[in-house]
């Protein structure tokens, strides 16, 4: 499929990268295999400037108002929010579990940090996800190289700062390879305090 190239318009502030919004929703009874995941994920739009981002974002439902088992993803253009994508296959993600009611605020803050290039880890950031679940909501940030400890530590420390997380917040990291093996996004993570 050919898509129109998205570029900043005159007077707009360009972003370092273009980003694409995705949405996915799963019926809990259905198994989360790769095929059904790919079928359930939908590309919503791509932005190239700060102004285009706000225009798009302001019309989206806030994640805290979503119901059921659904996710918003914001990824660099060209990277699919899937473990198997070329940019993700050696990567992993930091996970922050949020009690109900916090997702919308944290989602906005993590997006602004990513769009503003606050993480200072070169090309390493792939995208961010907010996952709405029944008991809790989950925020994740995906990076390219799971075994690069300098990068993953810097992402973790930046997250603490930009999200203003209390010092005792539990941070969990999971490689996409491990997610593929146990076919689960958020189980069996490595916990860091």
């Amino acid at each position: 499929i050919r898509r129109k190239m998205v570029t900043p318009a005159a007077g707009e502030h360009p972003l370092q990268y273009n980003y694409t919004f995705w949405y996915s929703r799963r019926t809990p009874s259905r198994p989360a295999n790769t095929q059904s995941y790919e079928q359930n994920i939908r590309q919503m739009g791509t932005v190239a400037s700060v102004e285009q981002f706000w225009k798009f974002y302001s019309h989206l439902v806030r994640p805290g108002d979503l119901t059921g088992h659904s996710d918003f993803h914001l990824f660099k253009e060209g990277i699919k929010p899937m473990w198997e994508d070329e940019a993700n296959k050696n990567g992993g993600k930091w996970i922050i579990r949020l009690r109900k009611g916090l997702a919308s605020r944290f989602w906005e803050n993590i997006i602004l940090a990513m769009l503003g290039e606050q993480f200072m880890v070169g090309e390493e950031i792939c995208g961010v996800v907010v996952s709405i679940r029944f008991q809790e909501d989950i925020l994740s940030i995906w990076n390219k190289t799971a075994n690069d400890q300098v990068t993953t530590s810097r992402i973790r420390d930046t997250l603490r700062r930009v999200l203003n997380l209390p010092p005792n917040t539990i941070m969990e990291y999971k490689t996409h390879n491990d997610s593929l093996k146990d076919n689960s996004s958020f189980r069996n993570t490595k916990i860091t305090l």
Binding site: P14, V50, W54, G116
Partner: peptide, 21 residues
Amino acid sequence: GTRIIYDRKFLLDCRSSPLAR
């Protein structure tokens, strides 16, 4: 190359620009 860095306050200020509506 140079990196385009924006802080949170700048990004939030852009939200009220007519171009962002």
